[in-house]
Design a protein around this nucleic acid. Structure first.
Lengths: 243, 243
DNA sequence: GCCAGTTTGTTCTCACGTTCACAAACTCCT
DNA sequence: AGGAGTTTGTGAACGTGAGAACAAACTGGC
């Protein structure tokens, strides 16, 4: 089932621990990895505006990041700037895209075509940023065959077939919470090694599989915490003497 | 973020900075705040299953967090556990909800009723976790009056009115990138002090306004980076000797 | 009442991430 | 050509977060 992924494992003992960093000097910290896409997007925007060169300060302002942090982030990729001048926008853009691995499209499947899955399938940002939705799956038979974003919704049982045919590595879970763990298990069994989980709740996967979680209400709750702290009585209290 | 990051230092008399820590001297670290909603959700699930007591170890397993970290997180709220016993699920749940500020519903407005805004308006997780969508706004006149999730889409010009009438503090931006900054400016002018931004790109707001950003394609790109690293030739790359 | 077993709350240490500050290196002007 | 002005890349200091380990405190049995 997961023949293609396990067969391509390098198998050499060079990268044993996550802290070695000796391979080619490239061990990029997680915090930096999380910012690279932000830089990439800003560079694309600059390119559309015709900007050919930018300094770290300009890019920092455009991305809301400290310029020293930005330079250090970029230094993990290599020395792609020119002192006294700045960075070539197109060149730097390509280098970041290459480092992330989005110089070509990644095929992606989405499981759970409810409101959110529907929106994700139609989200144009995926295609323009290195991803191509190649499969929409749902357990609900009423949805099967329905056209969504130019694709027909398929039965969940087709998972293995789609993954195998298209060599998919990344799956998106947009189901209710109750189904998320089962879906994740099936995804792993089918050979997916990266999962983006929109369902609330924790899913567990074996080592070697990456999971990222996006929880919409958690983001709101974090905002609520700070809001709550700004004004002691946030919403229902009618009168408060604001000094 | 400067208003939240002044922890009380040993030796100094508290509340030197004016706005900070005046409630009860507790300054909860951001990393902890981000986890409190996760604990809250797990506790709610436990409560539905009839569990009345749990240890830090059980809650840690349910949330995928180290138990020592969990205990430290909870200790910022106070001493709500009993040594030798554990935590009362309902009591702890209430304390966390109170700390976050979701014991009552927060009214929320959503601007941009496209695919994503539509899905957000219908997302049941908001209502069940302390939020109530009280307004849907869009600049597109064709959408005005359309019923979405039991609410009629209103013109964007109604923003100030809705915010004023319902005492809204939190707004969600689900527009295309180009409109995001304008919408944010109007939101701030209308009095919103917390913004959840789903639009790609950076928005800038004055101090005192909190912004959180959720970027769907960035999450996928982070996964792609790690996937890219697992197998040197991920999908369709034919040759190229990578240095 | 007292002891054994359990679990919390906290302290200490280490790793990671951020920011400052500056030498190295490049361009431009004279 | 040489010096002035910029901007990168990086070493070092600082702050925050994670995890191990342990004393304090509670329950239950005898």
């Amino acid at each position: 089932m997961n023949a293609h992924t396990s067969a391509e494992r390098p198998g050499e003992p060079g990268t044993v621990d996550g802290l070695t960093a000796r391979v080619s000097g490239r061990e990029i910290p997680e915090a930096t990895v999380a910012r690279l896409p932000i830089y990439l997007r800003a560079l694309n925007t600059m390119l559309e505006c015709g900007t050919t060169t930018c300094s770290s300060e300009e890019l920092a302002v455009a991305t809301g990041v400290n310029s020293a942090k930005l330079r250090k982030d970029l230094s993990y990729l290599g020395s792609y700037g020119t002192r006294g001048v700045g960075y070539d926008v197109d060149y730097l853009r390509y280098q970041i895209a290459r480092e992330i691995g989005v110089t070509q499209d990644w095929p992606v499947i989405i499981v759970g075509i409810g409101n959110l899955g529907h929106a994700l399938a139609n989200y144009s940002g995926f295609r323009s940023r290195g991803f191509r939705v190649v499969g929409l799956l749902d357990a609900d038979v009423d949805l099967h065959g329905r056209q969504v974003a130019g694709l027909a919704v398929q039965p969940f049982a087709d998972l293995e077939q789609i993954v195998g045919e298209q060599d998919v590595a990344i799956g998106v879970i947009a189901t209710p919470a109750g189904a998320a763990q089962d879906v994740a298990d099936r995804m792993v069994a089918a050979g997916l090694t990266s999962i983006l989980n929109f369902a609330p709740g924790v899913i567990t996967v074996p080592a070697g599989v990456d999971v990222r979680k996006v929880d919409l209400s958690i983001e709101l709750q974090i905002l609520a915490y700070h809001e709550h702290r700004k004004a002691p009585q946030p919403q229902t209290v009618p009168e408060r003497g604001v000094s």
